[in-house]
Design a binder for these strands. Structure first.
Lengths: 128, 128
DNA sequence: ACTTTTGTATTACATGTGTAATACTTTAGG
DNA sequence: CCTAAAGTATTACACATGTAATACAAAAGT
C-alpha cells in the first residue's frame, strides 16, 4: 500500500503493451497480450481494471469504449521494480545475478556500453 | 507451484540469515532477523515454517529444538529471483534499472570488476 | 422501440503473503 | 510425578494475485 507503483508480474504485461503504444482500448490491449500469453480476455480485463484501481492506468471515454493510457512511466516502474529486487538480494553475492543477466541476454550493446561507463565512474569511488 | 524456489520478500530475510550461518535454531534466526526488522518472533516462526513447507529449509531435531539449514543455495535463489525479475522488465529500456543498481551501491568493487570482465567477453560477441 | 451485441463493472474463488495469536507438546525444575 | 516454561504446530485474517465468470449497461441493428 505504501508503494503505489507495485505492479504484479501479470500486470506488467499490460503496462508493457501500453508503454509500447497508447492510448489503446481494452480490445487492442487484449490483442497485444494474446500474442505472447494464453490468458482469457476476461483475465486481461481484470488486470486492466486493477491497474486503473491502483492508479497505474487512466482512461478516457470514447463512446462506449475506454481509451487507456499509462499513468506510471516505464522508467518509474522499472526503477521501483529494481529497488524491490535489490531489497531481496542485497547482501548476498551477486555473481549469480550478474551471470543470469548476461545469460538471458537482455542487455543491448548500447546498454552494455552505458553500464560500462557508469561502472567506470563508480569504480573510481571508494567502493566497498 | 511450478517454481519450487519462489521465496517471498519476507522469507528472503530468513534465508539470508541461514546462508550466513547454519544450522541455526529458530531462536537464533529470530535474533538475526530482529537486528534489521521489527517483526514479532511469531512472524519469523511462520516464515520459517513456510520455508520448510516449500522445501527451502530443512531441519534436524536437537532435543526439543530444531536446527534449521537451507536446502536451496543462495546462488540458486539469486538466479531464480533474477530470472523472475528479468521476466518482468524484459523488453523495456534498462537504463533506469542500471541507474538504480548503481545508485543503491549494492555492487562491491570485486563484483564491479567481475561484471566488467563479463561485459568485455560479451561485448565481443554479436550483441543485439 | 426492442432485442442482440459488445463493452464495462461486479463478483468469485483458490493460493500466496504479511503479520500474528492460540493451541499443543515436550522437557526441565521443583 | 506434576507444573511451568519453552518449543513447535495449527489457526487467523486481511489484502494481493492469478485466473476467470456473471451481471449490467449502452449502442447498434432490425
Amino acid at each position: 500500500m505504501s508503494d503505489p507503483s507495485k505492479i504484479s508480474e501479470a500486470e506488467w504485461q499490460v503496462m508493457k503493451a501500453l508503454w509500447e503504444k497508447s492510448p489503446q482500448t481494452a480490445n487492442t490491449i487484449v490483442q497485444q497480450i494474446l500474442k505472447t500469453r494464453t490468458w482469457s480476455p476476461r483475465t486481461v480485463r481484470t488486470l486492466i481494471n486493477r491497474l486503473v484501481a491502483k492508479g497505474a492506468l487512466s482512461y478516457s471515454k470514447d463512446g462506449r469504449e475506454y481509451q487507456y493510457s499509462p499513468v506510471l512511466s516505464k522508467d518509474q516502474c522499472v526503477q521501483a521494480e529494481t529497488k524491490s529486487f535489490i531489497g531481496k538480494i542485497k547482501g548476498t553475492t551477486l555473481t549469480p545475478m550478474l551471470a543470469a543477466f548476461l545469460e538471458e541476454e537482455i542487455l543491448t550493446s548500447d546498454e552494455i556500453d552505458e553500464l560500462k561507463r557508469m561502472l567506470d565512474q563508480k569504480g573510481g569511488a571508494t567502493n566497498d
